[in-house]
Design a protein around this nucleic acid. Structure first.
Lengths: 345, 345
DNA sequence: GTGAAAGCGCTAACAT
DNA sequence: ATGTTAGCGCTTTCAC
């Protein structure tokens, strides 16, 4: 078990020799390609097993596929993304594809680095989850390799998209709170600066959905949005700002569960009881939202279904790069828990 | 921007022609290898920029390196692992290496699949975080590609290891609780069945550290261990079991923060106040441990430092595959928060 | 249905 | 210091 074990790897030539067939034949069996008799397949399979042969992906990639799918996650800490990932890997489990994740994609520059790295590595397809890159970059990526974009509402002819209806999600929250009797319902949004992609981002859609739903409930006058970010500190700061209002809201709709965590922290500090004094709702239905001591009302996006669809579309597109692009839009559901109740008095 | 854009990728030959030099020269510049004059480098660099050339990793991998590092995470949901990952990517940020994560590695079989996939893809090095595979498999992997194992206490000549001292971590918790006046301090551990790797696993070390520390504080009689698993349900079930004791503990040391979450949930259900009626401590100092409404006393493992060391060792080993293996052992610290206090009465 | 042979885009020996 | 050439291990024509 010493380091000097530079044992030459078993190659396709070894297998061919051992099975007394051509390398072409082995290659065909490997790829389940047409042109190999059942006997041939059996013979080759046996040789492969006996020698413990595994094809070298780099060599395959030079001519054909790499059987590798890249998934870009913007933030590995966001507990919503693993759900999507489960959907992706679940769908791909019985295929020859292997999934790899590109980490550390905070910001446009990092995203570009990761997507380029995936392209350079000859990945057969790429799934971009909630990317912040410009649409031009997304299309650049998609023109180099089959691509599915998750969580961006814009349509493009070169890539497929899978989204959850954020407008509906926001209206579910507002409807729930209004139904409990709330009128002063505030929203904490993620501030988006870039005008070219603003309409495509889920955060913008949630804010829009909030506005629309408030109007629909005759609460147009009560619309109150604080712009921070989809982070815990963002929620904390946003909550502080709302508490400083002359007439603070009786309910806060945080654009993401992680934001709600910051909101809860600020309210705890301020000595407010939730939901007695004030209600709080999040978005994403992350694992910790269900956790007993927190028990956060939230919007469930069916992450696994999102991932499953993304993987399905990607495999389809790898098979036919020229088919028209597809947009899948899923619907969220509300999960009411113990952070929302009727307003005080 | 239509799909039919099968634009041939720029190759090293194009760059060589454009710069009026040999492909060897371009290759040397790419790898910062010896044997290219400054003028040559400048000329080639310019051609690369002008053509937007990017080397194809698959082709490089066939002869040389792939500049790809694989990181295997057992559970992307465990909020401790991103810290390690940050350390890894931070250390590698200024190098040519790109990190990719292998997901869905729950169990020995999945781990094998992922490690094989990484080897097949010609990755230059692999970091295995808290693997559950047999030592034989780890050494098999390490003999095929430079490998660093994080969170396993066994030494091996073929791979380097980075660990945090779990025995010390457990003793910090016991010392803290004993110092507050607790005597009936129970521990919830992750049940390990396989005898061949039991001593190497962090969970076993934490349980051992707990036992040692209890004895050191003259509390040998009070040693009380419940075996479940390092999951939230594991903590919930373990807590239920402890509450059913004739003399329930006054403090519970959960082997991981996620376990403590389940414990807190069970205590909330049982109408016990924490820390008024009973104290709870976790391990890992995950993000949500610091979260206000939870404020869990925990052990901090300095995950970023662990990752940084792992990446450093890996790069060293890639450079010299025959150097003796190295073991790095870091020390944890205790972060006391609001879930621990003096026992009642 | 099967196999020989020509590459894929790089890097590594080996000239010069 | 620079260029020439022979592969790396596969897949893919294209013969048979």
């Amino acid at each position: 078990m010493e380091p000097p074990a530079p044992q030459r790897r078993v190659t396709i030539v070894d297998v061919a020799r051992h099975a007394k067939v051509s390398t072409t034949a082995v290659s065909k069996v490997l790829r389940n390609a047409y042109g190999a008799s059942p006997e041939m397949r059996a013979k080759v399979r046996r040789a492969i097993d006996e020698l413990g042969y595994r094809p070298l992906t780099a060599a395959r990639g030079l001519r054909g596929q790499t059987y590798t799918i890249g998934v870009m996650l913007p933030d590995i800490r966001n507990p919503f993304f693993p759900e999507i990932l489960d959907g992706v890997t679940g769908r791909l489990a019985d295929t020859d594809y292997q999934v790899f994740l590109g980490p550390g994609c905070n910001g446009e520059k990092e995203e570009a680095r990761v997507t380029e790295a995936m392209i350079d590595r000859g990945m057969d397809g790429i799934i971009l989850i909630a990317p912040v890159s410009s649409r031009a970059h997304l299309e650049h990526v998609a023109s180099a390799v089959p691509t599915v974009v998750v969580g961006r509402h814009g349509h493009s002819p070169v890539y497929d998209t899978v989204t959850d209806d954020d407008v509906v999600g926001a209206s579910l929250v507002v409807g729930h709170l209004a139904g409990l009797g709330h009128r002063r319902i505030a929203h904490i949004e993620h501030h988006e600066t870039d005008p070219t992609r603003i309409a495509e981002m889920p955060n913008a859609q949630r804010a829009d959905g909030y506005r629309q739903a408030m109007r629909a409930h005759g609460l147009a006058e009560e619309i109150d949005i604080v712009s921070t970010s989809y982070t815990q500190p963002g929620g904390y700061d946003g909550a502080k700002e709302l508490l400083a209002r002359p007439h603070p809201p009786t309910a806060v709709f945080a654009g993401a569960d992680i934001v709600a965590m910051g909101v809860l922290e600020a309210f705890t500090e301020a000595g407010l009881s939730v939901p007695g004094d004030i209600s709080v709702a999040g978005y994403d239905n992350t694992t910790f939202a269900a956790f007993g001591p927190i028990s956060l009302t939230s919007v469930d996006q069916a992450g696994a279904e999102i991932g499953d669809n993304a993987a399905r579309l990607l495999v389809e597109r790898i098979a036919d790069r020229h088919r028209a692009s597809v947009q899948v839009k899923l619907s969220p559901t509300l999960v009411a828990r113990r952070t929302t109740a009727a307003p005080p008095e």
